[in-house]
Simulated scan of single mutants.
Amino acid sequence: MALRIVSADERLSAAGAKTTMAIFGPSGVGKTSLLKSLPPAETLCIDLEAGMKSVQDWPGDSIPVRTFADALDIGCLVGGVNPSADPSGFFSEAHYQHLRESYPDLVQMIAGKRIIFVDSITDLTRQAMAWAKTRPEAFSDKTGKPDTRGAYGLLAREVIGLLKHLQHAQAKTVIFVGILERVTDEFNRTTWQPQMEGGKAGRELPGIVDQVITMSLFARDGDGWRHEPERGEDRRLVCRAGNPWGLPAKDRSGRLDVTEPPDLGALLSKINATRKG
Results as ranks from 00 to 15, higher is better:
residue 47 D to E: 05
residue 94 A to W: 08
residue 208 I to K: 07
residue 81 V to Y: 00
residue 9 D to P: 08
residue 180 L to Q: 06
residue 12 L to H: 14
residue 2 A to V: 12
residue 92 S to Q: 08
residue 207 G to K: 01
residue 66 R to C: 00
residue 117 F to Y: 15
residue 1 M to I: 06
residue 251 D to T: 05
residue 145 K to Q: 14
residue 223 D to R: 14
residue 81 V to Q: 00
residue 57 D to I: 01
residue 207 G to F: 12
residue 163 L to V: 15
residue 179 I to V: 14
residue 241 A to V: 06
residue 168 H to Y: 11
residue 232 G to Q: 09
residue 121 I to V: 15
residue 19 T to H: 00
residue 247 L to Q: 03
residue 266 A to I: 06
residue 177 V to E: 08
residue 18 K to M: 13
residue 181 E to K: 13
residue 274 T to F: 13
residue 140 S to V: 07
residue 97 Q to T: 14
residue 260 E to W: 08
residue 221 D to P: 06
residue 268 L to M: 12
residue 270 K to G: 01
residue 89 G to D: 11
residue 49 E to S: 10
residue 13 S to G: 14
residue 155 L to Q: 03
residue 192 W to L: 06
residue 274 T to Q: 15
residue 255 R to Q: 11
residue 25 G to T: 09
residue 170 Q to I: 13
residue 101 E to V: 12
residue 117 F to L: 07
residue 185 D to F: 10
residue 200 K to T: 14
residue 48 L to Q: 09
residue 94 A to L: 15
residue 123 D to I: 03
residue 218 F to H: 04
residue 106 L to D: 04
residue 214 T to S: 14
residue 124 L to G: 01
residue 21 M to Q: 04
residue 202 G to M: 05
residue 139 F to C: 02
residue 136 P to C: 05
residue 210 D to K: 00
residue 49 E to D: 15
residue 8 A to E: 13
residue 89 G to F: 11
residue 160 I to Y: 03
residue 40 P to E: 03
residue 136 P to Y: 09
residue 165 H to Y: 04
residue 182 R to P: 00
residue 209 V to Y: 01
residue 60 G to H: 04
residue 42 E to H: 07
residue 267 L to C: 04
residue 91 F to M: 05
residue 135 R to N: 05
residue 226 R to K: 15
residue 67 T to N: 02
residue 245 W to F: 12
residue 118 V to H: 05
residue 165 H to E: 00
residue 141 D to Q: 11
residue 147 D to T: 04
residue 78 V to I: 15
residue 173 T to W: 00
residue 137 E to P: 02
residue 57 D to Y: 07
residue 22 A to V: 12
residue 44 L to W: 02
residue 90 F to Q: 06
residue 183 V to K: 14
residue 7 S to K: 12
residue 50 A to H: 15
residue 5 I to A: 12
residue 1 M to W: 10
residue 193 Q to I: 08
residue 159 V to K: 01
residue 106 L to W: 13
residue 110 I to P: 05
residue 3 L to A: 13
residue 44 L to Y: 05
residue 131 W to M: 06
residue 221 D to I: 00
residue 205 L to R: 03
residue 243 N to W: 02
residue 237 L to R: 03
residue 80 G to I: 09
residue 64 P to D: 04
residue 115 I to Q: 02
residue 146 P to C: 08
residue 214 T to F: 06
residue 163 L to K: 03
residue 134 T to N: 10
residue 179 I to S: 04
residue 87 P to S: 03
residue 38 L to F: 05
residue 134 T to H: 03
residue 218 F to I: 04
residue 75 G to Y: 03
residue 225 W to S: 08
residue 14 A to N: 13
residue 161 G to K: 11
residue 249 A to P: 05
residue 4 R to M: 14
residue 143 T to Q: 10
residue 183 V to L: 11
residue 210 D to T: 03
residue 228 E to T: 09
residue 5 I to L: 14
residue 226 R to I: 08
residue 221 D to H: 14
